[in-house]
């Protein structure tokens, strides 16, 4: 009797609730993300403008990457595409390098127990603030402060102080505008990076720092020999997420333009895609923008798989490795090698 009852209890399964609980997520994800992704693939092998229903195979990719297949139009589109890829890379590097340098320095100082910097909490709050402000408002604000004409606040100040004789072209100049976008991006994101790195540093084993202090290591030595090597996984993670974020950079490059005229030196890949499928309405270039999206997708997969590899459950992976090694050893023993390490 008892055993039958026990068997009965054991057979109560809650598995169906698991499916029920995760169902909404997967339904919505398939409908609003997976199908649009497949749809993007489909659109990328069809034509552009008025010919969106015409199947052209890999013509769009050919035009974007090699500038062939569509006559003069394809050379022009290839030039633009490589220009926007280059712009994205330049603007990303120009904002990431100073951003990570400042964030890392601040994170190390703020977590150093020996240094007594008053008002740490206040500084953290202020430095994170630009990150929550609407990007559209930030772009509009910087457009007005750094206006090209002598009426812009910064130009006005510089002219009165006699630093410059001519107003600086902060919006239309090639490197001036790129520099401004780099600055705005770094301005918006350095606080966020700093706090992430700080939490990474605080997660490190404090006894290592104590030991180094007792041994008389200088701050520079501690940073180079302890903090930096231990922080490497978090730094790599920050680097890759920032790279993926950089590929999608849209708001500031799109809006940091005068009127409706867009500066070709600050146009990023995301802006290029948006212009072709959205601003060309009612005759959108679904082909070009779809193909560019797919190229972006492939780059993201490459970068993402590195983070995914890092984010995976390390213990589980280690156990798997151990099991594999044990199996290998067993096999070797069976082969008659006497259990020697190979």
């Amino acid at each position: 009797m008892a055993s039958a009852a026990q068997r009965n209890i054991r057979s109560v399964s809650y598995a169906k609730y698991g499916y029920f609980f995760i169902l909404p997520f997967f339904l919505v994800y398939c409908f609003f993300q997976i199908w649009p992704l497949i749809n993007t693939f489909i659109l990328s092998v069809y034509g552009n403008g008025k010919a969106v229903d015409e199947f052209i195979g890999l013509g769009n990719f050919e035009a974007l990457l090699f500038g062939t297949g569509m006559g003069r139009a394809s050379t022009a589109i290839q030039e633009t595409f490589f220009q926007v890829l280059g712009n994205t890379l330049i603007v990303w590097i120009g904002n990431f390098v100073p951003q990570i340098a400042i964030s890392l320095a601040l994170a190390v100082w703020f977590t150093d127990a020996k240094l007594k910097i008053p008002g740490k909490g206040f500084f953290k709050v202020i430095m994170y603030m630009p990150n929550i402000i609407t990007a559209a408002s930030v772009a509009a604000l910087f457009l007005k402060l750094f206006d090209d004409s002598k009426y812009g606040v910064v130009n006005n100040l510089f002219l009165t102080w006699g630093v410059i004789d001519e107003p600086i072209k902060f919006i239309t100049g090639v490197w001036e505008s790129r520099g401004m976008i780099m600055f705005i991006q770094a301005w918006m994101w350095f606080g966020n990076t700093m706090i992430m790195l700080m939490s990474g540093i605080m997660g490190l084993n404090p006894s290592l720092f104590e030991a180094a202090n007792i041994d008389g290591a200088s701050s520079g030595q501690v940073f180079r020999k302890i903090t930096l090597p231990l922080l490497r996984p978090i730094m790599l993670y920050t680097l890759i997420t920032s790279m993926i974020g950089g590929l999608q950079m849209f708001d500031i490059p799109y809006m940091y333009t005068k009127g409706t005229q867009r500066n070709e030196y600050t146009k990023t890949v995301a802006v290029f895609i948006y212009e072709h499928f959205r601003e060309k309405m009612p005759n959108p270039n679904y082909g070009f923008s779809g193909a560019a999206s797919i190229i972006l997708f492939i780059i993201t997969i490459g970068l993402g798989s590195i983070t995914f590899y890092m984010n995976r459950d390390k213990d589980a992976a280690a156990r798997k490795k151990e099991r594999k090694a044990a199996a290998k050893k067993l096999k070797a023993q069976q082969k008659g090698l006497g259990g020697m390490e190979i």
Binding site: A15, G18, I22, L37, N39, T40, S44, F277, G290
Partner: peptide, 30 residues
């Protein structure tokens, strides 16, 4: 809950965490 596709479902969610909005937006809008 413990169910058959639990591991696969979680792995899927981790994998798609990085897919940017811009990549699917062309197909999404159409």
């Amino acid at each position: 809950y413990d169910f058959k596709i639990k591991g696969a479902a979680y792995t899927f969610i981790l994998a798609v965490m990085m897919v940017p909005m811009q990549v699917t937006s062309v197909g999404f809008l159409q």
